[in-house]
């Protein structure tokens, strides 16, 4: 119907709320799904995905659509995109250590490779990226550098999340020193510590 089309155009032109595609990137076991669940539960009451100590638990992009975050007088509507962890290696034998049968381990490894490819393909389809790093580990890895480099090349706003600050050997300063060019928020996705800082950063930097 032409009237509806025209109305849609006016709404779009005069400030209809844009939905931000917020991608959560990082290596496996950095705490992406834990954080995605925290954000989603805070604002919708429902989780996004399953958390596990087994690497590559998230093997497909998991979405939570229309998450409305209210922060500092602003209302942000976003689609949360929890990405599979990006890695340069996947060894099926690693899964055997977690009690998988050889057949299941091979299947999981196969699915994990597809997940990594999917996460890379999504790099050009997010509006803002949270790059999650485990603050107990050396952040200056090629995977982190590759993720940041690809997002920078596409001018996608980046917020680095120094996660797991609840752990005794956390060293968020390490991340701040490695990547001083990006905003960094120290949080614990598990306990929710400093999560408000992250919401403020999303409101400030996202587009």
């Amino acid at each position: 119907m032409p009237f509806r089309k025209l109305l849609g155009w006016f709404k779009g032109f005069f400030g209809k709320k844009k939905i931000i595609r917020l991608g959560l990137y990082g290596p496996p076991n950095a705490g992406k799904t834990t954080l995605a669940n925290k954000i989603s539960i805070d604002w919708t009451g429902e989780p996004v995905g399953t958390v596990s100590e087994v690497p590559h638990e998230t093997r497909e992009v998991q979405k939570k659509e229309r998450v409305i975050v209210k922060v500092g007088g602003r209302k942000i509507v976003m689609n949360l995109l929890d990405m599979p962890g990006i890695s340069t290696k996947i060894d099926f034998e690693e899964f055997l250590q977690y009690g998988f049968s050889a057949e299941d381990a091979k299947q999981r490894a196969k699915e994990a490779t597809k997940g990594v490819i999917e996460a890379i393909k999504w790099l050009e389809n997010v509006d803002t990226a949270l790059v999650i790093m485990d603050s107990t580990k050396d952040p200056y890895t090629q995977v982190n550098i590759t993720i940041l480099g690809n997002l920078e090349a596409r001018n996608i706003p980046i917020i680095i999340v120094a996660n797991k600050i609840d752990l005794p050997d956390s060293n968020a300063k390490w991340i701040e020193e490695a990547f001083p060019q990006h905003p960094i928020v120290r949080i614990s996705g598990l306990t929710g510590s400093n999560i408000e800082d992250l919401y403020n950063a999303i409101a400030k930097h996202s587009k």
Binding site: I86, S87, T88, K89, I90, D91, F92, E93, K106, A109, T113, K114, V116, I117, I120, L123, Q142, I145, T146, L148, G149, N150, E152, A153
Partner: peptide
């Protein structure tokens, strides 16, 4: 960075029981 991402993608396509990455 783009080549690095392409290399990771190509690596994933080559992963097998003998080649883990």
């Amino acid at each position: 960075s783009t080549d690095e991402a392409k290399l990771i993608e190509a690596t994933m396509r080559n992963i097998s029981e003998k080649f883990s990455g």
